[in-house]
C-alpha cells in the first residue's frame, strides 16, 4: 500500500506503508529496551527527584517539591563529594594523563616486540575491575607485610597507610586507575601515531632536528587533538568514580574518597532514600551531559 503524505512545507512524500511496518518491526526490539532501560529511567529520574519515592508502588509516591534538592545541597557530603571529584580530576591529570602518551611514543619507536607491549599493557583493562581492586587492596595493605610496604621497607623507607592516610589515598587510587586504563588509551595514541607520515620525520632530520626535537615538534603537535579529546574522556570517567571507594575505602578516611556516584549509591541503596538519590542523579546527568557536549564539540573539531 503506497500513499502520499503531505510534509510540513508542502513537500509530498511517497510512503510505502507495508515497508514502513517492516522497518518498524526491525526497530521494535531496540525501541522497547531503550524505552525501559534508558529513556524512561532518564526522564523518570527528574520526576523522582521531586518525589518521596515508594519503590514498590509508583502510585504511593508523594510529591515533595524541591525538598530533595534542598536536602542534597544542605548535606555536608555534597560539597565534600564534588570537591573530591575535582581533586581526583586535577591529580589524575598530573599522575595519569601523560603516561599513555609517553608510552605510545616509546612503543612506536620499537622495531621489535611492539605487539608484546601492546598486549601486556592492555591486560589490566580486560579483567573485572572488582577483582583487580581486591588484589590491589592486599598490595596496599597497611600491614608491614603488605606487598608495597614490604617493598618500601626493603628499599629503606617506612611502611605507609596507603588507603588510610587522607594525603595518600587519592594518589593510591589513581595509580590503580592508571594501571587499569592506560593500556587501552595508549592503543588509541598508537593508532594515531601510525598515521603520522614518515616524510615528516625525514624532513626534520634533514633540517638537523635531534630526536628529542622531532618528538617535541612533530609527534606532540600531531597527537594534540587526540590528547584533548581523551582528556575529556578521562574527566568523564573521573566524575564517575564509584567502585574504588566501594571496595577499598567506603568513602574514607573521613570523607576523602566520597564521590558523587558513591554518595548517590549510599543514599539510594543503603538508606532507601530514592528521591534524594534521584536528585543526585539529576545533577550528575547535567554535569556529565555538559562534559559530553564538550567532548562532542572537540571530536568534531578534531575530525
Amino acid at each position: 500500500m503506497v500513499t502520499d503524505v503531505r510534509m510540513p512545507g508542502g513537500r509530498r512524500l511517497r510512503v510505502n506503508w507495508s515497508q514502513q511496518i517492516v522497518a518498524y518491526l526491525f526497530l521494535l526490539p531496540a525501541l522497547v529496551v531503550f524505552t525501559i532501560f534508558a529513556w524512561f529511567p532518564i526522564i523518570n529520574s527528574v520526576f523522582m527527584s521531586f518525589q518521596n519515592v515508594n519503590l514498590v508502588d509508583a502510585g504511593r509516591s508523594t510529591w515533595v517539591g524541591f525538598r530533595n534538592f534542598e536536602r542534597m545541597f544542605a548535606d555536608p557530603t555534597f560539597t565534600a563529594s564534588w570537591i573530591n571529584s575535582l581533586e581526583f580530576t586535577v591529580l589524575s591529570i598530573i599522575i595519569g594523563f601523560f603516561v599513555p602518551v609517553v608510552v605510545a611514543i616509546l612503543v612506536n619507536e620499537m622495531r621489535l616486540a611492539k605487539s608484546f607491549f601492546r598486549v601486556v599493557y592492555f591486560l589490566p583493562s580486560v579483567i573485572p575491575p572488582l577483582i583487580g581492586l581486591l588484589v590491589w587492596r592486599l598490595i596496599y595493605s597497611p600491614n608491614p607485610g603488605g606487598l608495597l610496604n614490604s617493598l618500601v621497607t626493603a628499599l629503606g623507607g617506612a611502611p605507609q597507610q596507603w588507603l588510610q592516610n587522607p594525603a595518600l589515598v587519592k594518589p593510591s587510587i589513581l595509580i590503580i586507575m592508571t594501571w587499569g586504563g592506560f593500556g587501552g588509551t595508549m592503543l588509541i595514541y598508537l593508532a594515531t601515531l601510525q598515521d603520522l607520515p614518515v616524510e615528516l620525520y625525514e624532513a626534520a632530520e634533514i633540517d638537523g632536528a635531534s630526536i628529542w626535537q622531532r618528538a617535541r615538534h612533530i609527534i606532540l603537535p600531531y597527537l594534540r587533538p587526540t590528547m584533548l579529546v581523551l582528556l575529556i574522556v578521562q574527566v568523564l570517567g573521573l566524575v564517575q568514580i564509584f567502585i574504588e571507594p566501594l571496595v577499598l575505602t567506603q568513602g574514607g578516611p573521613g570523607q576523602a574518597t566520597m564521590t558523587p556516584v558513591f554518595t548517590l549509591y549510599r543514599k539510594g541503596f543503603l538508606n532507601g532514600d530514592y528521591g534524594l538519590a534521584a536528585a543526585w542523579s539529576v545533577l550528575l546527568m547535567i554535569v556529565l551531559g555538559i562534559i559530553s557536549l564538550v567532548y562532542l564539540r572537540m571530536s568534531r573539531i578534531t575530525e
Binding site: 532518564i42 529520574s45 538519590a277 550528575l284
Partner: peptide, 12 residues
Amino acid sequence: TLMIPGIAYIIP
C-alpha cells in the same frame, strides 16, 4: 543515551 553514562541514572 551515549551522552549520559548509565551510572548516572542507576537509581531510576
